[in-house]
Design a protein around this nucleic acid. Structure first.
Lengths: 185, 185
DNA sequence: GCTTGCATGTAAGAGGTTACATGATTCG
DNA sequence: CGAATCATGTAACCTCTTACATGCAAGC
């Protein structure tokens, strides 16, 4: 269900086509909710049928035409009612942790390379988040005091992503040290 | 796919019935991979058909009979080959973050109660992890130096859970402070 | 001429959730 | 007498992933 709401939030922040939404789900929104273009087109079609979004055909030069979606009154109401309902904390799904426990029945040392790859991937993601933060929130272009609620809320979510990546990097280093200790025995 | 492997790892750690596995998925294994009993029974049946696990009917007194599953050679091989394949880092799915961004189009202050509920849930989970840690890894019953690879690897995974909960608590406090700041304007 | 970007979709299959269903025993 | 625990399942449905499919324009 949350994909519907994530799309509504993204369209309220800025109307756009399915293709544009798919790109946002590789960036900002995608930091905490992922979706492929196939999912997005399907949900947009359903929400259009339910009157949650409006569509406008936009002709473009030197590019295919696109359908620009924006949130209709019914969609705004649906989002508001979801916002007022409590949700359960998400369960974590960490495949790498399954592998780490599985390594006890295989070669723990062989996992080091895999863990290092994940470390690198998270370091890249952290760098990307930090670049986004200084571009959008603390850079010279950004107002010294945040002007609106939306900006502040986007920033606090991004800070969550940054904290998650830093925590993960530290933990992966702990995992590597543990694997090395086990290999020395 | 990872549910198969999580079940295999759990059965290697200790053979058991579908029901027992379901309870482990509410505890230890469930800290990083969740599954309901319906999923577990389905996967066990499939793995039995594929010769990945062996079953043994166990009669019990004052309780229904159970089927005790253990990992067969083919299952061990399947797990080993998965362990040697690289996996992509998991994407985070954080519904609460969608709500926080959505709050910009609703009443930010109204979210405080929801965020506090999540804070409480994570504090409880952290307390539960810490109790498990001192019981199984640093308590008087636990050996002063970890004896085997399995124990060390289980411990490092649990430390990951602890780090995750601490990070989340700190972030939720940041979120609350942000919401309060917005409410004062 | 090939790749990348823009733009939209269909279809099959895997994986996950929710509801329903049964039946014995133990504890309060 | 009712709730909780142990124990196993079926069925419907929803969601998500992966593969396939098309077509134009720009840049190398």
């Amino acid at each position: 269900m949350a994909l519907d709401h994530a799309i509504l939030v993204s369209l309220l922040e800025k109307p756009g086509s399915g293709y544009e939404l798919a790109r946002r789900f590789d960036r900002s929104i995608g930091y905490f909710w992922t979706a492929t273009h196939q999912q997005i087109y399907r949900v947009l079609k359903r929400m259009e049928g339910d009157g949650w979004v409006d569509v406008r055909e936009v002709a473009q030069q030197a590019r295919p035409d696109k359908k620009e979606y924006s949130v209709a009154a019914a969609g705004r109401a649906a989002l508001a009612s979801w916002l007022h309902e409590p949700i359960q904390p998400d369960n974590v799904r960490h495949e790498l942790a399954v592998k780490i426990r599985g390594a006890a029945f295989d070669d723990p040392a062989a996992l080091s390379r895999e863990v290092e790859r994940h470390h690198q991937a998270h370091a890249d993601r952290l760098a990307h988040y930090l670049a986004g933060e200084s571009r959008d929130f603390t850079g010279p272009e950004a107002p010294p005091v945040a002007s609106d609620a939306g900006r502040e809320l986007q920033h606090v979510v991004l800070r969550g992503g940054i904290a998650y990546e830093r925590m993960t990097l530290a933990w992966l280093e702990d995992v590597l040290a543990t694997l090395h200790r086990l290999a020395e025995r």
